[in-house]
């Protein structure tokens, strides 16, 4: 791609107590996914961004996010323009887009979550 189109990507960063939308400019490749856009931000712009993913092919649901208000798997959702990416649930937010509380089925682990 010679002159890739730049899109504006706003990502909700922070935790339950405090969060804000942080804007990034990302070159849009044809056929890129929302997860690919986040990977670009992590690789090139801001490695502090928090998100989870695993299979990257739409099977595992580790990368659920709210993209432009809609809860989707970010790996199979195509990035086709400006977007707002937010955690898909607030009550179990760890940081940024990491919203899952890990399962700790063991009583002896005190204060399991944060």
């Amino acid at each position: 791609m010679d002159n890739p189109k730049l899109i504006s990507v706003q990502v909700r960063r922070g935790d339950k107590n405090e969060s804000e939308l942080v804007a990034y400019e990302v070159p849009l490749e044809d056929g890129q996914s929302v997860l690919g856009v986040l990977q670009y931000i992590y690789d090139h712009l801001d490695p502090s961004i928090g998100f989870t993913c695993s299979c990257r092919i739409g099977l595992c649901s580790s990368c659920l996010m709210r993209v432009n208000g809609k809860v989707v798997q970010s790996c199979t959702t195509l990035a086709d323009g400006d977007m707002v990416i937010e955690p898909y649930k607030e009550d179990t937010l760890v940081r940024d887009l990491v919203t899952e509380l890990p399962l700790i089925s063991r009583a002896s682990l005190s204060k399991p979550n944060i």
């Binding site: 935790d15 992590y42 490695p47 502090s48 961004i49 928090g50 998100f51 989870t52 760890v94 940081r95 940024d96 990491v98 944060i114």
Partner: peptide
């Protein structure tokens, strides 16, 4: 080299 030092879910 690691930029981010937030201990919570640190990808780096």
């Amino acid at each position: 080299h690691v930029v981010n030092q937030d201990p919570r879910f640190n990808r780096e």
